[in-house]
Design a protein around this nucleic acid. Structure first.
Lengths: 111, 111
DNA sequence: AATAAATGTCGTATGTTTGCGACATAAAAC
DNA sequence: GTTTTATGTCGCAAACATACGACATTTATT
């Protein structure tokens, strides 16, 4: 009874799925959105923007960082976060291509 | 101590997150891929294609159905599944737009 | 040096997802 | 009408995700 059987699928699908998972929580989307909204890198007062505890926001930030979607620069006691736009762009394209391939398939339900 | 605080976020973000969650498992991506690969609607021999138990595949199919990404037509003892291409197209665009907005933000890390 | 501010990590509780065997149902084949 | 085939649902166990308070650390202020 082995759980987490993800490894039986192609790495391509695993990677896309892993990326989708990062986007699968509104808090993380809100964080990305907020960072993008500031025209400068803004520190962890993301925390005051997001209606969750500091701990929880910090965790979500770590996940985004692990996924390579953001990165933080320490400056004194503060940390300045910003988007990794190349990575985001790359994943956007990958996601889009996957969906496109699906949408283009003429899967006609003749029944 | 209320868990599942998703409802504090905008419905827009909640919806995008919910969609991402459906794509967040390689088995579901593999199922979508497989259906798209057949040029006709193919019944649940998706099951023999996916290296998971029939039960588990059935569950993933239900999730995809609930999300409106596929739909099944009963014919005798068999069920023919096919993609809801309009829905897929719509979500593809929505996802893409969100990512685009992020990627375009000139979040310059000056530090 | 002592205190305050900003942030991160640990442990833990709760909730959700994944996976499967066993059972249920319903149409088809015999 | 009984058996076979295809599929779905139930209940459970393991794993994973989410959320937070308490503690730790590190730099700034006094």
């Amino acid at each position: 009874m082995t759980y987490a059987k993800k490894e039986v699928f192609t790495t391509d699908l695993q990677e896309i799925a892993a990326f989708a998972k990062v986007l699968a929580h509104p808090a993380r989307l809100a964080i990305l959105d907020y960072i993008a909204g500031q025209n400068q890198c803004i520190s962890g007062d993301i925390t005051s923007e997001i209606p969750l505890s500091r701990t929880t926001v910090s965790q979500h930030l770590q996940e985004l960082k692990n996924a390579g979607l953001i990165h933080g620069t320490v400056s004194g006691t503060r940390v300045f976060y910003c988007l990794e736009t190349e990575k985001i762009q790359a994943l956007k394209t990958r996601m889009h291509d996957f969906m496109e391939k699906l949408a283009e398939s003429q899967t006609q339900c003749t029944i």
